[in-house]
Simulated assay, not measured.
Amino acid sequence: MQFLRTLFWVVIAVFVAIMARNNWSDVTVNLWGNLQADIKLPLLLVIAFLLGFLPPLFVLRAKLWRLRRKLSVQQPIAAANPPAAAPHDEELTA
């Protein structure tokens, strides 16, 4: 299974490298006013991907960190107060 996962990622990486090589051309980006930037197309796509991917990733990580902190605070309280034991069948019939 590990081999298939590695093979999958290698195929994806080769595909991305071939696409980047075939599209290695300059793109002019109009920033503001008369300011323009010439940037390679694959680099522009990577920057756009990261601008869309990183903020939600940071929000998710922050939520997980907060939940883990709350859970770590609650665990000692739960260990100090164990739940009451269930009554045995003998006690129920008496």
Results as ranks from 00 to 15, higher is better:
residue 38 D to S: 09
residue 38 D to R: 13
residue 38 D to E: 10
residue 39 I to C: 05
residue 39 I to T: 05
residue 39 I to Q: 03
residue 40 K to E: 00
residue 40 K to D: 01
residue 40 K to Q: 06
residue 40 K to L: 02
residue 40 K to V: 01
residue 41 L to R: 02
residue 41 L to S: 01
residue 41 L to T: 00
residue 42 P to Y: 01
residue 42 P to L: 02
residue 42 P to N: 03
residue 42 P to F: 01
residue 43 L to A: 04
residue 43 L to H: 10
residue 43 L to N: 10
residue 44 L to K: 00
residue 44 L to A: 06
residue 45 L to W: 05
residue 45 L to S: 03
residue 45 L to Q: 07
residue 47 I to K: 06
residue 48 A to M: 04
residue 49 F to E: 03
residue 49 F to K: 01
residue 49 F to Y: 11
residue 50 L to T: 05
residue 50 L to N: 11
residue 50 L to W: 12
residue 50 L to Q: 07
residue 50 L to H: 04
residue 51 L to N: 02
residue 51 L to S: 03
residue 52 G to V: 10
residue 52 G to L: 14
residue 52 G to T: 09
residue 53 F to W: 06
residue 53 F to Y: 08
residue 53 F to A: 14
residue 53 F to E: 01
residue 54 L to K: 03
residue 54 L to P: 00
residue 57 L to I: 05
residue 57 L to D: 02
residue 57 L to C: 09
residue 59 V to Q: 12
residue 59 V to T: 09
residue 59 V to W: 12
residue 59 V to I: 13
residue 59 V to G: 02
residue 59 V to E: 13
residue 59 V to N: 08
residue 61 R to I: 07
residue 61 R to L: 13
residue 62 A to L: 11
residue 62 A to H: 13
residue 63 K to F: 15
residue 64 L to A: 15
residue 65 W to C: 08
residue 65 W to I: 13
residue 65 W to M: 13
residue 65 W to Y: 11
residue 66 R to H: 07
residue 66 R to P: 00
residue 67 L to F: 15
residue 67 L to G: 05
residue 67 L to T: 11
residue 67 L to D: 15
residue 67 L to K: 13
residue 68 R to L: 14
residue 68 R to T: 06
residue 68 R to K: 11
residue 69 R to M: 15
residue 69 R to D: 08
residue 70 K to P: 00
residue 70 K to H: 13
residue 71 L to D: 03
residue 71 L to E: 06
residue 72 S to N: 11
residue 72 S to L: 11
residue 72 S to D: 15
residue 73 V to A: 14
residue 73 V to F: 14
residue 73 V to M: 12
residue 73 V to L: 14
residue 74 Q to A: 15
residue 74 Q to H: 10
residue 74 Q to G: 03
residue 74 Q to S: 14
residue 75 Q to V: 15
residue 75 Q to F: 07
residue 76 P to N: 11
residue 76 P to L: 04
residue 76 P to T: 06
residue 77 I to A: 12
residue 77 I to M: 13
residue 77 I to S: 08
residue 78 A to S: 08
residue 78 A to W: 02
residue 78 A to P: 00
residue 79 A to C: 06
residue 79 A to N: 13
residue 79 A to Y: 02
residue 79 A to I: 02
residue 79 A to R: 06
residue 79 A to H: 05
residue 79 A to S: 12
residue 80 A to T: 06
residue 80 A to V: 05
residue 80 A to H: 04
residue 81 N to M: 09
residue 82 P to E: 08
residue 82 P to D: 12
residue 82 P to K: 02
residue 82 P to M: 07
residue 82 P to Q: 07
residue 82 P to V: 07
residue 83 P to F: 03
residue 83 P to W: 03
residue 84 A to K: 13
residue 85 A to V: 07
residue 86 A to P: 03
residue 86 A to S: 14
residue 86 A to W: 09
residue 87 P to V: 07
residue 87 P to Y: 05
residue 87 P to H: 04
residue 87 P to I: 04
residue 87 P to L: 14
residue 89 D to C: 08
